[in-house]
């Protein structure tokens, strides 16, 4: 079966998994950002994202809300600045992270993609993140990563979510990425059938203009819908 990804998104930004104090801190950050240490808040969010796969998928939302709140309240961007710089640090250490813990690495990629998706500058993606996001996805498309279902899973999820936007800002790198994906699908030995299925679907997905035709959709999803 294909992995089912999201639970219902709720308005509470999934902060129940934090301890009481942290929940309070985050709630305050959402309501009255200038009264809290926003650097600390950004670190808490990144730390949790690297641990918690569910949180990493939706953390962009809470970040977006805090960024908006801070901008509205004081025209500031302390939170965003700290968030991005911390993210940059994690990006720099990504190969180490991957070597240490696949799960953390996958969480990181999920998180950075989610931030790319949610935080915009004048409604357009943040240029500074385009190459880093591509670098992460390219890494997931390397032969050794394709052998891990976790990573393939993460890769295709990200492409489903932000592939279209990414291609719009830089289609050349998307082409490069898809060369790798085709190669992986066609040539890589020892690739599991699940990984092949995921790759085939994403190839079709992009070829169809970032959507699946109804027949393709039926092919990939009819089993799990019933």
């Amino acid at each position: 079966m294909l992995p089912s990804i999201m639970e219902n998104s709720t308005d509470d930004y999934r902060i129940q998994s934090f301890d009481q104090d942290t929940q309070m801190l985050l709630k305050t950050a959402l309501k009255d950002p200038s009264s809290v240490n926003l650097e600390k808040v950004s670190n808490i969010i990144v730390d949790q994202s690297l641990k918690d796969q569910v949180f990493s998928k939706e953390a962009g939302r809470i970040c977006y809300t805090i960024v908006q709140a801070e901008a509205k309240q004081s025209n500031g961007n302390v939170f965003r600045r700290n968030l991005l710089n911390r993210l940059q640090q994690e990006f720099k250490d990504r190969e180490e992270t991957r070597g240490r813990s696949l799960q953390e690495w996958v969480c990181f990629v999920t998180f950075i993609c989610n931030i790319f998706d949610y935080l915009k500058v004048n409604n357009t993606p943040m240029v500074a993140l385009v190459h880093p996001v591509y670098d992460c996805l390219m890494r997931l498309a390397q032969p050794d990563a394709l052998m891990n279902e976790e990573e393939v899973d993460c890769l295709v999820l990200q492409l489903h979510r932000i592939g279209e936007q990414l291609e719009k800002v830089n289609n050349q790198r998307m082409d490069e990425l898809f060369f790798l994906l085709r190669d992986g699908f066609l040539l890589q030995e020892g690739l599991g059938s699940m990984a092949r299925l995921l790759l085939l679907e994403i190839l079709e997905f992009r070829a169809g203009g970032w959507m699946l035709s109804s027949t393709a959709h039926k092919y990939y999803y009819s089993e799990i819908s019933d």
């Binding site: 990804i5 004048n122 489903h160």
Partner: peptide
Amino acid sequence: MSDWTRDRQRDASSSEPDRRNIG
């Protein structure tokens, strides 16, 4: 609709506010 795309449909009007005071 696929599980993947379900929550991509976000509020498209996520405009950043006019922030001139950077620095």
